[in-house]
Design a protein around this nucleic acid. Structure first.
Lengths: 195, 195
DNA sequence: CTTTGATCTGAACGCATGTTCAGATAAATT
DNA sequence: AATTTATCTGAACATGCGTTCAGATCAAAG
């Protein structure tokens, strides 16, 4: 046996996903060809198939990895506390995490319709899991009496849409720092759900 | 001269745009072929070129029409009043209009990157015009002292992202009526920007 | 040094793409 | 009835697509 590990595949494999990530985010899944990805990696198109069974898996793997990373990062940061404290932490976490991964976020929201039905269901389940934490916080806040009684499901969708929208205009070299953006959005979220 | 107006072009022309609208919204611009559009209309692919110079113009025309219709509809509904009254009207208008045109909205937000640079600039200008009305309302509210002093540009982006997000989950046959959705979102928007 | 096999090239596969165009069709005008 | 011409068909064009695969390459294992 020869060339088991430590050879090119350790380098090329991640580079394939990286190139797909960047290109899908920039031009969209359907508009990017396997040959473009290969060129970015520096190999011929055929070589990509040592690392993915097909183009669809490339998209699915990127989305799955993103959602699992998101859930893991959130899980390891979660703390007990009042609903208000937890909502603030969730808000700041969401903004910061999404600002740091704009390509992944863009793909995860824009390319859902390019997933096969089975892959779509898998990604939706992960997304739902993430949304459910926010909804639980909002419900807890209602019980505590600090948040207004409302339709928590819609509040959840509204808050996430508002927060995720930050990725459409934020630029690192822009007028505001990520800290300031966090604070501004937290102000709005807090007021929007409070009594 | 013969067959000037009143012939097939009056029927086929709009049907081309309608088919493109539906297909682009469902599958995405890059994933839809001219032959698919032609089949939906009931003609051969070549006949489409009597109604559009190319595929790109189809996308641009759809977006331009949508943004211009949006601005016209908003303009004809605009009334004088307090900042709070105007914000409520804007909020309810935006939700209702976007719920009624989910295909157009979806395309206008998802297919921006498939526009040529010139076409992109034209659509962005129209979008900016729409956003500016909301920002003016928020600024007026600050002057009146009824809205909290804040970064009105970011508030604008946040509110629009929140409101437009309604199109991702709302279904006409679902649990909530459009009226109820309007009220829930208006509650959140009002609180989010108020002092 | 020989063998092994993971990795990659380069060509090929059948099919789809956006667009063009000569010619057929047929409704409205003369 | 003859003419005009907007509209549409059907075929073709060059190009690109996702994917496959026989064979070349060459570092590591024996």
């Amino acid at each position: 046996m020869a060339r088991t590990a430590g050879s090119h595949s350790d380098i090329t494999g991640p580079r394939v996903l990286d190139a797909a990530l960047r290109l899908f985010a920039r031009h969209g899944y359907a508009a990017v060809s396997m040959r473009q990805i290969a060129k970015e990696v520096g190999v011929q198109a055929g070589a990509l198939y040592n690392y993915t069974p097909d183009k669809q898996s490339l998209l699915f793997d990127l989305m799955k990895r993103h959602m699992e990373d998101l859930l893991a990062a959130r899980g390891s940061r979660r703390r007990d506390g009042t609903a208000l404290e937890q909502l603030e932490d969730f808000t700041r976490f969401h903004i910061r995490y999404h600002l740091d991964r704009s390509d992944e976020v863009f793909i995860a929201y824009m390319e859902l319709r390019n997933l096969t039905p089975e892959n779509f269901a898998a990604i939706e389940a992960l997304r739902r899991e993430y949304e459910n934490e926010l909804e639980a916080i909002l419900r807890q806040g209602e019980v505590e009496g600090v948040f207004a009684p409302a339709d928590t499901r819609i509040e959840t969708m509204a808050v996430i849409a508002m927060l995720t929208g930050v990725t459409t205009w934020y630029r690192a070299e822009g007028r505001l720092s990520a800290d300031e953006v966090e604070r501004i959005y937290w102000d709005m979220v807090r007021k929007a759900v409070s009594v």
